[in-house]
């Protein structure tokens, strides 16, 4: 019994210590403004690998999720004879919830795991260490551009996801199932508010992008520098990011749309 309590206490200490390290790490990486001539090319390269290379999975997933929403929405709404509201349903679902959440989950799986593995391997092969010994701070040279790239790319990816999703929903409900196009877009326009729905959705993506990238990059930097360590860090990135996104989504939704 005492052993269990002691283990619980140790776990608590470990968690607090890890959170502390992660905070210290974030501060070290984001402190200091790099010279634009040095920092900009590094950022562009990371934006490419984190953002552009994630486009395919985001676009394809967005398209299919939009199409499924169109199909499901039409089947349900047509029972009540209000299939014209399908556009409004698709848009609100995507902009408020599915866009930010699904993109964040895809982002954690596609870009986050890659970031963790890359940084973990750089640590294991002493590349970070040797950079430090050359008088170059890896936090600023390696970590900071990746963090900023994630912060920037994730909201843009989520917006693309929602746009493609709405288009996919339109393909199914208007072009295939024959919902009147004017009603589809008109209903959407009158019910989606820019500030309450679109902006709140974007705020969610910013939060998710920040959390996912932070977790991914920190797990890589903090991993045990062995094969097993990198594999467990990569797993942790995906698991922690997904849980954090889903948990934070509930909190943010309660604050944004709770009306209490």
């Amino acid at each position: 019994m005492m052993d269990r309590i002691a283990a619980l206490g140790r776990l608590g200490f470990d968690i607090v210590a890890t959170v502390g390290r992660a905070g210290y790490f974030l501060g070290g990486a984001l402190a200091g403004v790099p010279k634009p001539a040095v920092g900009f090319p590094l950022l562009v390269r990371q934006l490419y690998s984190v953002g552009v290379l994630s486009l395919a999975i985001v676009v394809v997933s967005g398209l299919f999720i939009g199409m499924v929403l169109g199909l499901q929405g039409y089947t349900i709404l047509s029972d009540y004879g209000s299939e014209a509201a399908v556009g409004q349903m698709i848009a609100l679902t995507l902009v408020r919830e599915l866009g930010p959440v699904v993109t964040a989950l895809l982002f954690a799986g596609r870009a986050g795991s890659a970031l963790t593995a890359e940084i973990g391997l750089m640590k294991a092969t002493e590349q970070l260490s040797s950079m430090e010994m050359m008088g170059v701070d890896p936090l600023r040279r390696v970590i900071a551009p990746r963090l900023w790239a994630g912060f920037i790319a994730m909201p843009i990816l989520a917006v693309i996801f929602s746009v493609v999703g709405i288009w996919g929903g339109m393909l199914v409900s208007v072009d295939w199932l024959g919902v009147f196009e004017g009603a589809f877009w008109g209903n959407m326009q009158s019910s989606v508010s820019f500030v309450d729905d679109v902006l709140n959705g974007v705020v969610k993506t910013v939060v998710f992008g920040f959390v996912c990238t932070w977790i991914a990059v920190f797990q890589g930097y903090d991993c045990v520098p062995t094969s097993a360590g990198i594999s467990s860090a990569t797993t942790k990135t995906v698991v922690y990011s997904s849980l954090a996104v889903l948990g934070l989504d509930f909190v943010l939704t309660a604050v944004m749309f709770g009306n209490f």
């Binding site: 092969t125 002493e126 590349q127 260490s129 040797s130 430090e132 010994m133 050359m134 008088g135 170059v136 701070d137």
Partner: peptide
């Protein structure tokens, strides 16, 4: 970091 610019280190793995 300034002092490290005066140092070179050859890692075992090359790094």
């Amino acid at each position: 970091y300034t002092l490290r610019e005066k140092m070179g280190m050859l890692f075992q793995s090359g790094a």
